[in-house]
Design a binder for these strands. Structure first.
Lengths: 213, 213
DNA sequence: CTCATAGTTATGCATATGTATAACTGTGCA
DNA sequence: TGCACAGTTATACATATGCATAACTATGAG
């Protein structure tokens, strides 16, 4: 056996960071945080462990970067629906709620990732900040959609209703990820529209469109 | 320094197993699965690491036992309410739903534990079985309460509605654990009763009782 | 009181993990 | 072409982790 040194190709910083983050997320999704060791991550990304330290100050920083990327991806998936949504406020809200309860937002892998990072989010201030940002961003969008409904509601109840609707949606999102086979096609969006409609006192179910555009 | 051997007291098998399980759960709740090492668990339980192997075949078995204990405790907390619940079906269901959305069922620590064990539940067949048992147990109780309501509903929609209500409740349970400060006193039960009532087409909110008996 | 046994501790080991450091090499530039 | 540097690899190290084994001792039976 010749002790031949491994061949390699130089890549841009962005490409390498993305590859490492993606490898970390995949490993976490497959086997929990425990499975995402520096060696496993490097192997999955096709590099050697030392390179992680070249692009990140340590494993913790890579973990934080991976979580930020996850949050960003999820919020993007979700808000993209508003670009093609109709103008009618009620239909618009219905589209947003339904999109939050369908793939790719509802996804077993996303749930596992969320759970795996939960403790870090509690503990690490930076991860906590990233989480808060993503959470309030989503809730603000939801609240804006609710505020646009043709009805009268004072700011206080508006905010309370936004929290309530967000809770129902988040909860159903969790259930959909945890028990993918328990729900029939479009059953989750239907439950969500029923519940959110009940909280707001409007009918959203009739505005539900078929499976994503 | 005298190499004095540590003093110890003999305990019953049950006491030792309980202590080790409790120590493991506390550590997981505080720092995730990663924090629950054999040494840390033994230290927290006031014994030395070797003893874990005396009472469990390995760390995995202790982990499984801890999860089973957790599931058992949670389902007990929840079903205890039915013992003192009123006889009227509607009030009975309302009491059950509300209890599921109040402490001690809703609890940040419980959520963290749930998340920490999620990957193991997916992976390990035994943990999966324990989870399924607890889940269907809860859903069956809920479905029985729904079936007792004075209205007509065929078995198929009954089951679908039970799943939907369960999803809403679970979701709100999650939110309550994740954001303890986001909800006012009894706001979570109120949201839950509103949503479940909407799904079933009955009024549950008027049957809500004050904070737990 | 004696003593055997099972509960408990102490020690050691093989492996895994994160990180530091040095050696190598592909790549753009003069 | 040749060179210098940043990207990449290889190696080493200190510590942590789960597990095995042997030594010890609290406790109950006789």
């Amino acid at each position: 056996m010749t002790g031949a040194r491994r061949k390699f190709k130089r890549e841009s910083e962005e490409a390498r960071r993305d590859a490492l983050i993606e490898a970390a997320l995949r490993l976490v999704a497959e086997g929990g945080m425990k499975a995402a060791t520096v060696r496993a991550i490097a192997d999955r990304a096709g590099v050697t462990p030392g390179l992680i330290r070249h692009y990140f100050n340590g494993k913790d920083e890579l973990t934080r970067a991976a979580y930020s990327a996850l949050m960003q991806r999820m919020t993007e998936d979700n808000s993209a629906v508003l670009d093609t949504a109709p103008a009618d406020p009620q239909a618009r809200l219905a589209a947003f709620v339904a999109a939050s309860l369908r793939p790719p937002v509802v996804d077993p892998e996303a749930l596992v990732l969320w759970a795996a990072f939960l403790n870090g989010v509690r503990t690490d201030p930076e991860m906590r900040a990233a989480h808060e940002a993503g959470y309030v961003g989503y809730r603000d969008r939801l609240q804006a959609l609710i505020a646009a409904l043709p009805r009268r509601a004072d700011p206080q109840t508006l905010r309370a209703q936004a929290i309530a609707c967000n809770a129902v949606i988040d909860g159903l999102w969790l259930e959909g990820g945890a028990l993918p086979h328990a729900f029939a096609e479009d059953e989750l969006p239907r439950i969500g529209l029923t519940s959110v409609g009940a909280i707001l006192g409007v009918d959203l179910l009739s505005h539900m469109t078929g499976p994503q555009t």
